[in-house]
Design a protein around this nucleic acid. Sequence first.
DNA 1: TATGTATTTAGACTAATTCTAATCCGAGAA
DNA 2: TTCTCGGATTAGAATTAGTCTAAATACATA
Lengths: 136, 136
Amino acid sequence: MSYEIEQLLNKHGVKPTPQRAVIAEYLMSTMSHPTADEVFQAVENKLPVSLSRATVYNTLNTLVEKGVIREVVTEAGKARYDANISDHHHFVDLETGQVMDVPLEEIGNLPIIQPKFMDGSFEVQNFQITFFGKRK
Amino acid sequence: MSYEIEQLLNKHGVKPTPQRAVIAEYLMSTMSHPTADEVFQAVENKLPVSLSRATVYNTLNTLVEKGVIREVVTEAGKARYDANISDHHHFVDLETGQVMDVPLEEIGNLPIIQPKFMDGSFEVQNFQITFFGKRK
DNA sequence: TATGTATTTAGACTAATTCTAATCCGAGAA
DNA sequence: TTCTCGGATTAGAATTAGTCTAAATACATA
Ligand SMILES: [Mn+2]
Ligand SMILES: [Mn+2]
Ligand SMILES: [Zn+2]
Ligand SMILES: [Zn+2]
């Protein structure tokens, strides 16, 4: 496994194993916001041993918990995974389902929105904007 | 079934049946953004006949297609339904899972955000903001 | 009344994810 | 070195959310 991936996992307190490394490496390499099944298909032949779907799910959950990646939910029934943990939002192409990053600059560096929620009795920790549309 | 529900369904081109009426009535009565299963449990005993889960799913899908209600997705693996079709956003209490409305006034009547997306090659049709946080 | 179409139903089916129990692996202890 | 033990991985079963199928029902109109 590459030194960078090993460092990244160690930095977040995740023991680097070959399975975790290929999954993290794949997520770092793509902008496609893949589902668990897409991750499985992309990496299953990159290991000398067989890879279990349970390991893919375990690893994705661990990486999310430890802050290595983010989970992105844009439609019912499927979770997507994103190695881009910088503050950004998402655009969903309604025709293809493709999920794309919307960096903060693209929306004019919108300041953190802090709704005065329910008379201030709730506090917002973060928020996610999902744009839906299509190619012109 | 109440005259108002009958009118609402007719207005949207949905033939009012007893099953559709109790489901729509329940959604109009609650602010809880229930899942399909919560809808099923809330209404199953409000009819003289047995209610099929398939009818609940069929009805929710029909009501969404015809614009009577909205689907709201705040977490992986479950769709929620919302009879509030006015333009608004959502807050998710991370401790309880509760989903609450965030009217536009609460976020300062934020103007429609139109990201200059990918050099203007995509157009945004709508967007939704999901806030995550907890009770203070 | 006869017919046709939409709706509802129970249950089979599928897809996504989690769980289980057995095996595997590797870092430190003996 | 070998032992040991906890964490990681595995195959497959189980669960959950949702869709599909085929039959029965309801209802509008001819
Ligand atoms: Mn998935
Ligand atoms: Mn549901
Ligand atoms: Zn992203
Ligand atoms: Zn709402």
